[in-house]
């Protein structure tokens, strides 16, 4: 290759022989291996062709199922939110209605019952102390400072 010699004398020195080898009998055996592969593909290819024919329907079915599931989930979510909101409203209405009929005394009694005996005791002591201080003629600002 004279042209190559002109462009690159270094390259022209290298043998053009392809330096790769192949396994023994590779080309003798290749056609049979290839035919085997093609036959195997043809067999599976029949199934693939059937699958290809059904593919659009399959895709549509998948889309419908996904839409149905998403729809159901969204609907359930909204319904749950609504029922929660309804429940909250119902509770607050009931509490309001019932509170109207409950006397302050009952509420205080319930509060005392729920906070325990200790809270009641402290409250009684405080009142006693205040009464005592008032009786002793201690000025009001000093009593306030003490608490």
């Amino acid at each position: 290759m004279d042209a190559l010699n002109k462009i690159s004398p270094e390259l022209a020195k290298i043998s053009k022989e392809i330096p790769f080898r192949i396994p023994e009998n590779y080309f003798e055996e290749f056609p049979d291996r290839l035919q085997g592969r093609i036959r195997a593909r043809e067999k599976t290819g029949v199934d693939e062709k059937r699958m290809m024919a059904f593919k659009p329907y399959l895709a549509a079915a998948v889309l419908i199922i996904v839409a149905l599931i998403s729809g159901t989930l969204i609907f359930r979510n909204i319904a749950q939110k609504r029922s929660l909101q309804n429940l909250h409203a119902e509770i607050s209405q009931t509490v309001e209605r019932e509170l109207y009929y409950i006397s302050e005394e009952t509420i205080l009694r319930v509060m005392n019952y729920t906070t325990g005996q200790e809270a009641v005791t402290i409250s009684n002591h405080t009142e006693e102390i205040i009464d005592y201080l008032m009786n002793e003629d201690i000025p009001l600002n000093e009593i306030i400072d003490a608490f």
């Binding site: 392809i18 790769f20 192949i22 590779y26 080309f27 290749f30 056609p31 290839l34 093609i38 593909r41």
Partner: peptide, 28 residues
């Protein structure tokens, strides 16, 4: 054509096994 195509692919892929695969794919 197998030999000429094999060597063409082999010079691109270097590896024999890869070449064998691609030669088969080509003929398929």
């Amino acid at each position: 054509f197998q030999e000429r195509l094999y060597w063409h692919i082999r010079k691109i892929l270097i590896d024999h096994d890869d070449t064998d695969d691609i030669l088969q794919n080509t003929f398929v």
